[in-house]
Design a protein around this nucleic acid. Sequence first.
DNA 1: GCTTGACCTTGACGTAACGTCAACTCCTAC
DNA 2: GTAGGAGTTGACGTTACGTCAAGGTCAAGC
Lengths: 262, 262
Amino acid sequence: MNEREHTRLRDEWSIQEIARLVGTTSRTLRHYDAIGLLAPSRIGSNGYRWYDGPALVRLQRILVLRELGLPLPAIQRALRDEQDAAAALREHLTLLRREQRRLERQAASVERTIAALDSGGRLMAENMFDGFDHTQYKEEVEQRWGADAYASGDAWWRGMTEADREGWTALVAQLGADWSAAAQAGTDPASAQAQALAQRHADWLAGIPGTPGHGTGRPAKEYLLGLGDMYVADPRFAASYGGERGATLVRDALRVWAQAHL
Amino acid sequence: MNEREHTRLRDEWSIQEIARLVGTTSRTLRHYDAIGLLAPSRIGSNGYRWYDGPALVRLQRILVLRELGLPLPAIQRALRDEQDAAAALREHLTLLRREQRRLERQAASVERTIAALDSGGRLMAENMFDGFDHTQYKEEVEQRWGADAYASGDAWWRGMTEADREGWTALVAQLGADWSAAAQAGTDPASAQAQALAQRHADWLAGIPGTPGHGTGRPAKEYLLGLGDMYVADPRFAASYGGERGATLVRDALRVWAQAHL
DNA sequence: GCTTGACCTTGACGTAACGTCAACTCCTAC
DNA sequence: GTAGGAGTTGACGTTACGTCAAGGTCAAGC
């Protein structure tokens, strides 16, 4: 088969030829046949698949929609009538935008984590369950509440005895476990149970020297609300509070609590 | 089992308990065990899995990295030493950014296609292989080259006889097929073969009344270069030129040709 | 007439990270 | 003794094909 014959125009093509023509593979065409998306126009007595002009056109439409990211079932439906095509694309577009925003948040989160690691953090080496890691959040605390806040909190922690720390750690772990259980049970953020946890959480925070509000018996309102948002946005916190559901519950319960008590 | 016992701090948890604690499912934990990512600290004589503190910490690290979008094998490697974690995250970040840009292009493409459909286009109803669809590109042509260009090209096409159109269509289809074959063969854009195709392509374009350069025997340089970029960016074109590889070859060959001849 | 080689076929496994039965065992409480 | 709520190990389904594997078909060259 020479070049001339290879590219001469005919009214029927083999599976390889048509695959090359549109830049895909024969495996893909067999797949489309198998799922009923594109059947060959003719099947030889030897089982070979042959495609004609209309089949080629349909294939091209399929590939256009595929390039745009539509799943094959959606392409199937869209090709049944052109009305559906626009609707499917519109729906797909909102999905694309949503996914874009998700990636944006994820990338930002990765960047923060890299920065934390670079500045000496240890990827939850000492976290809520085995000792609250102060260095972990150094940057964020300093940025929001000043270097003094961080330094005094850090000094306080380092000044504790081993027994003190273990007791503190157990408290924190218990709090995290209770939040997790409450989230799992679908507790309402405004419920008495959640508000009791919020109270414990606030007490705990107020007990840490250096946090805004320490000494007044209750944390500063802005600090508490900001902390709640951080819990939800940062997977390092979510891991200690029963995942995203848990972190969301903590934030919402703290909001309600802050409105009532601060 | 009452609430107190449920949330009391212990040194060992069942699979359900630990799943709830971190906000995931027991199935996930069994999966992690199966792939060697996280083994239970102990397995009872009855086959039950039990997890202790260190296992919980490891699980939390896993979930943090998973939230950040890392695949499980990468998490596996990252947890072996903290050095790798930062490197893995950095690599992952570039992937995220790349994917973000891809989605951006895809979304833009979807928007253009929706606009084309809304303004009466028919999703490649008459394309390169069954008749160049002028209405398809109305918007783009008008935007770049003015409404006159579009109108005169359209009138010319509508004024053709059936036989004229068939002849023209065959020419265009042959050109597309030859481009596809060349792309498949890995032809160099600067090669004699590709340049011969580019010449045919330019001749063809120049033969369409209304295109910039029609009447001069060769298309306008800017028009030709812009068209090449459009070929690559728009899947509707790619479908007729052997996919992305084909469209890229056309663009690059036209660039070389334009430098030499325009 | 036979080999060679390109092309075709169907069948089946692999991919990522689990969700979702199914069938069965274990343990505690009433 | 039994009901129910754990736990266990399979095994299939998900997306859109890639990638063998084993074997049939066809035109060309000796």
